[in-house]
Every structure is written in C-alpha cells, then in structure tokens.
Design a protein around this nucleic acid. Structure first.
Lengths: 218, 218
DNA sequence: ACAATTATTTAGACTAATCTAAATTTTTAT
DNA sequence: ATAAAAATTTAGATTAGTCTAAATAATTGT
C-alpha cells in the first residue's frame, strides 16, 4: 500500500514519461509544486520500494509495479471525473480538484463497481482514455488542431490542457467535445488559426497555443 | 481545514458524546485504536484550535465549531454509504470501510450534489439518520428489541452495531430493515428473545446482546 | 483515610514528508 | 578545455502524528 503522496509522485512520473522517456528531478518539483530536494528524498524512497528505477543526476522511470499503480490512479481519476460530470452534472472545468482527492480512495472493488455503474466508459469528460481494470488503454489517434492544414477538419475529441480557465474558454467558443471544426485560415505571422464550428457561419480565431491544446480525430 | 486524523477524532468524540456527556482519553484511545498518550497530544491540538473544550484529567466536549465539523463528517459517511448500497449495489455489511475513506473528501458541493442525486435520503443503509446540509438530524424514536415485552413487536429500523459479522448474521436471519418482528417469548434464564419475522411460522432466537443492538419502531 | 489501582499526562524519541542552505555533479558556452 | 551556470543531491532542521516509559493525578477498597 502506498501513501497519498507516493501515489501522486507515481502518477506524475507516469504522465511526464509520455513526453520524455526519462523524467528529471526538476520536472517533478515543478509539476508537484515542491522543491527539488524533497523530490530527491521521495525518489530514493520509491526506488527502495522498487516502484521506480532511479539513477542519481540522470532521471527516473517507472518499474512495472510502479506503472501498474500509476495507471490505476489515473483510471480512478478519470472514472470519478466521468461520474461527476455524467451523474452529478458538474461542468467539465469543475471536476479536476475533486477527482484529485477521489483518485486516492483505495478500494479496488469500489472503482470496478463504479465503472460498471456507468457502463464502462472509454473516455473521460476531457477526452482522455480511461484504462480498464487490467490497465489497458484504448490508443487514441488524435492530433492537435495546430497540425491541420487549411480546409482540413475533424471532431474535437480531447484537450491537452486541463485548467479551468482553458476549459471555460473552450466552452465559451463552443469548442466542446464532439463538435466538428474546420480550418479556414492559418495566419502567417503568428500561426493563429481561424476556424468554423459545426458548419456555422461564425469564424473564430484561436492562438497557436490553443490550437496545440485541442485534439481532433478525423 | 482539518486533517483526516483530526476529523476522525472529532467524529469519534461526537459519537461517544451520545452515550456520555463528557468523553475520556481512554475511551478515545480504545475507539481509535491508539494509545492514551497519543490522544492527549491530539486533544491539546484540537483544544488549541477551539474545536473542543478539554479539561485535563476530566474529559472533552465539542465546541459548536467542532460539532459542526463532526456532523459534517457523519453526513458524508452516511450519504456515501447510501450511495454505495443504493447505486453501486453493495451489501450493507460491505460499505463501512469504503465510507471511512470517502467521508474525508473535502468538497462541500460534491456531497450536496450527491445528496441531490440520491433524492435527499433521510436514513443510511443501517437506519442511521443522515444530517441535512445544515446539520439538522431527524430525531429517531427507535428502541431496542430488548425493551419489548412478550407479544409486542415493531418494524426493524436500525442497528446499534455495525460490524460486518453482525450485519451478515442479521441478513442470514432475515432481520433486515423494514421487516416486521414480534416477540414470542423472553427466556428467563438469559433474557434471550424468541421472535417471528414478517408473520412467518419460523421462530428465531437471538441473544440478549443481539436484541439490544436491533432497533425497532412501533 | 490512605494505600493500591487505574487513568491521564509528560518527556523524549521515531517516521514521513517537507524545507533551506551548502555541496557536488553535469551541462553549456566560449 | 575549462570556467560559469544549471541541476541535483546532501546535511540538518521542522511539523504532524505516533509510540514507550516514567511521572502524576484521580478513584477505589478496605
């Protein structure tokens, strides 16, 4: 059994591993809002428990056991988010903090029963895939709007940024999951993207940054 | 904001206060499965925070603020138990441990939304009243089977003991909430009670101890 | 009433997680 | 190649919650 804190470290290492194979102390400190010295201490402890492979000054990767625990926390987080939005009718920008607590509830049978109750959803309210009880994850083939060319489009299927501010911004522009977008123009000087939503007449313009953080499927 | 541990102390003081006005160090140590010395330390801390009134060597009572927090934890515990049984279809003897964790999820709006989702239930799966969002509790007028005379009866409405073993025992005897019982005989030598359930022919016999722990309403 | 027992508190220590400041290692730039 | 900068680790301290052992207070039994 791991503590709340250990689970948060494992989850964060897991998420950062998607970007770089090996995760560094400073990356973890920044993400976990703590100090590098604290991270070093925890990494030693997790390595001691064989949950990570840790090479001082180089970086850290998850062991199979560590990865299992991390995926499990992610599964719980996303299932609870789905519950909060679909059953309790919270908005997609309201659920992250609550799920950060709920993801540490330990009972395995509880989360499996919750999964069943909701009909085994495959994606959470932000389009992230929900691992099944064996840790298997449906591989997404989404790409950011920033990679579309003019006249190309797709269905909004996920986001890469989960801050309430960003999610509220998307809601205001009607850039919600399931909506169809089409690129009308990419402005040369700042790569900002002009697009339409659901065949509407309205053209909306989003920054290159925003375009990178909205994922579409073909 | 209180820690998990502080909340458990407050909740336990609250529950023990129902039996004795003032709660002692050893009572708390026994209930919380810890040592008297640890309890003393925590009581000093809670008194410092004005959540309890603590008189060394005498005992402890909750302040208004402390009581508010305790009732809130109890509310969350009972609502989550109701959720686990009514929505996720757990049995009444399976939910206590899970609710012990869920009761510490901090979001107030989450628990209120959960309450709404379930239609504002008044009692949890063990017949205990669920405080409303203002902390108001429906006063029960239940009495234990041990206080019934021969030929008297009532509807099973609650239990005073929540261990899985006791709950499973009740289930096996069909002594479930809502069922009608009637006292046929009280054996003189050990006060054990013979009764019928739902007008059935079957007579079942329960110990005086068990009879004390099953609550009926008229 | 007072000795013995029981309950409670105090003293001092431990673990987990964190911090600051200093030391060390690695990387980068010339 | 090596000095400066950046990243990381080590050392030592802090807080929350817990413990054991010792000291003190309250209660009980004769």
């Amino acid at each position: 059994m791991q503590t709340f804190t250990e689970e948060n470290y494992l989850k964060t290492i897991y998420k950062l591993s998607a970007e770089d194979a090996s995760v560094t102390t400073n990356q973890l400190a920044a993400t976990l809002q703590t100090k590098a010295a604290s991270v070093t201490d925890m990494l030693k402890k997790l390595a001691e428990k064989k949950l990570i492979d840790y090479v001082p000054y180089y970086g850290v990767t998850l062991t199979e056991i560590g990865k299992k625990i991390a995926v499990d926390v992610v599964r719980k987080h996303r299932l609870w988010e789905y519950f909060l939005v679909e059953k309790l009718k919270f908005k997609w920008d309201e659920v992250h903090e609550m799920a950060e607590e709920l993801e540490h509830i330990s009972s395995v049978v509880l989360v499996d029963r919750l999964d069943q109750f909701m009909g085994y959803p495959a994606y959470d309210p932000h389009g992230d895939p929900i691992p099944d009880k064996h840790g298997r994850i449906k591989q997404q083939e989404f790409k950011p709007i920033s990679q579309l060319n003019v006249a190309e489009g797709g269905v909004i299927s996920g986001v890469r940024e989960h801050s309430p501010a960003f999610l509220q911004y998307l809601e205001k522009l009607n850039l919600m999951l399931g909506n169809q977008v089409k690129v009308i123009e990419i402005l040369a000087y700042d790569q900002s993207v002009v697009l339409t939503v659901n065949q509407s007449e309205n053209r909306i313009s989003i920054s290159k940054e925003a375009a990178k953080n909205i994922l579409v499927s073909a």
